[in-house]
């Protein structure tokens, strides 16, 4: 019996030593972002969606699009993109939003005033292994500049640029930006976006 006891306690000690060694050997705990990961993530170029692309998808009522507004609720209420869901950046990891952000079907686009918060949110969610998440390039500032108040290209500009300008002018009218010089509408239409949730149960609680 004595020998058996020593064997089992020894097994526990070996196991814990194993945990200790792998923890120390990897030096940085597994749940921390390592520098090489950050470089890999930053150098990915397909993480952005341009304002033109977003406008096109919004205008075609693309049902697979989920817009996430990362700003404070106050800012969200005063102006937001059509159909956007407000998840302030500090709540991005909350369980209640996980189904919205982490799923395969929808294209999730993060935005804030610039692309600052969106990049942070994107890095976080990328690190968690979430797919199909994108950043609105230039954020709302860029949205206003390019879509709501497009500037007319100079006469020597290429045909492409004129086409883009025409598209933007149409988009501007669609999103209530009015003419290129008009006021930004504060009551953009907000069609409800149906969110297809991946089946996911919250982990329950032992005794509680």
């Amino acid at each position: 019996m004595k020998k058996l006891d020593a064997l089992f306690v020894g097994l526990l000690l070996i196991g814990s030593l194993w945990a200790f060694i792998v923890n120390t050997a990897s030096n940085t705990p597994t749940n921390r972002i390592q520098p090489c990961d950050i470089i890999n993530i930053i150098s990915q170029s397909d993480k952005y969606i341009t304002t033109d692309e977003l406008a096109r998808r919004l205008m075609s009522d693309d049902p697979t699009l989920t817009l996430i507004d990362l700003r404070e609720n106050k800012e969200f209420v005063s102006y937001s993109l059509p159909g956007a869901i407000n998840i302030p950046i500090e709540k991005i990891l909350d369980n209640e939003y996980r189904d919205i952000i982490n799923q395969d079907v929808q294209t999730v686009v993060f935005y804030s005033n610039s692309s600052d918060l969106a990049v942070k949110a994107w890095m976080l969610t990328k690190r968690l292994g979430y797919k199909n998440n994108f950043i609105l390039k230039g954020g709302l500032n860029n949205w206003v500049e390019t879509i709501l108040r497009p500037t007319e290209p100079s006469e020597t500009a290429s045909r492409e640029e004129f086409e883009r300008y025409n598209f933007r002018k149409a988009a501007s009218a669609y999103f209530g930006g009015g003419s290129a010089t008009g006021e930004v509408s504060t009551s953009a239409p907000k069609p409800k976006v149906a969110i297809k949730r991946k089946k996911k149960q919250a982990a329950g609680g032992g005794c509680d």
């Binding site: 526990l12 000690l13 196991g15 814990s16 030593l17 945990a19 200790f20 923890n23 120390t24 705990p29």
Partner: peptide
């Protein structure tokens, strides 16, 4: 670190 904590806990146990 988690690993160190587990190891210490086991030694104490």
């Amino acid at each position: 670190s988690d690993g160190l904590f587990i190891f210490l806990m086991t030694v104490i146990a």
